[in-house]
Design a protein around this nucleic acid. Structure first.
Lengths: 138, 138
DNA sequence: GTAGCTGCAAAAGATTTGCGACCAA
DNA sequence: TTGGTCGCAAATCTTTTGCAGCTAC
């Protein structure tokens, strides 16, 4: 059965190959935000032939097709996740590097408003919270 | 007269040299968000001897001392600005690369709240709006 | 059949580092 | 004096690209 990411790529008219199917499967099955090396490592488990070059090329292709999102999170490498219709932002645990997702609908309009005041129309945004775990006694 | 950035570095116990004074002056006089090459170019005008290596080292030093802030803005290179006591966020004109600053006090508490709900205490945040100019007839 | 894909090795671009000479405190 | 700093060149790290052979449509 085709993976969700594969289906979305096909819908976007992206040509499919074995390698791309493998990488699509990896992303479909990931619930975290893997970087290129992690995607490569997971792809190699499914198909040992997969090269890192193709992973780079494929992730970029999928991202340009709007199927994946690429994030920076102030770490060395870019991280990827499947794009969702539901917008959301990220909280990064600066101790462990863990990434949590959240959605703050209340700020949408506020940000729109600020952009408008400056004479701009919003195209995209990046909101990341860097935080440490709350201690019981804090 | 010492520049503002220089004074703040001295207050932080950073050892001063001619090169550092020059770079401190450049940042003190910048109202934009220059990248390393731009800082270097401006420094060279004041002191032709300034090397790019020292600019890299010094910007990092000043940032670690909390006197400068380093931003990514999804461009190739990092950009720098003097740290301010007044928190603010940025709007990036995706057509021109221009960077505007704004402050949305309304969202502060909302974000704190979301972090707390996830069990975290905020350390820092990154909020960037990517936008295009509003057209008159839009 | 042919434009598009793949893997390898090499290139690229930004930033960091080793090192010997030099300088601030 | 002496540990910190400077400039140069070389190294690093991630990502991209040239090329020759292979493949999906």
């Amino acid at each position: 059965m085709n993976s969700r990411v594969e289906e979305r790529c096909i819908a976007q008219g992206v040509r499919m190959t074995d390698q791309r199917r493998t990488i699509a499967k990896v992303l479909s099955e990931s619930t975290d935000h893997p970087d290129v090396d992690q995607v490569h490592a997971r792809a190699v488990k499914l198909d040992p032939e997969t090269s890192i070059t193709t992973v780079y090329r494929t992730l970029r292709l999928f991202e340009e097709a709007g199927v994946l999102e690429k994030h920076d999170f102030r770490q060395r490498r870019f991280r990827y996740e499947e794009a969702t219709d539901q917008p959301h932002d990220h909280l990064i645990d600066v101790k462990t590097g863990d990434i949590l997702e959240f959605y703050a609908p209340e700020i949408e309009q506020i940000l729109e408003e600020h952009a408008k005041t400056l004479g701009y129309q919003l195209i995209d945004r990046r909101l990341e919270l860097y935080a440490i775990p709350l201690t019981k006694d804090a």
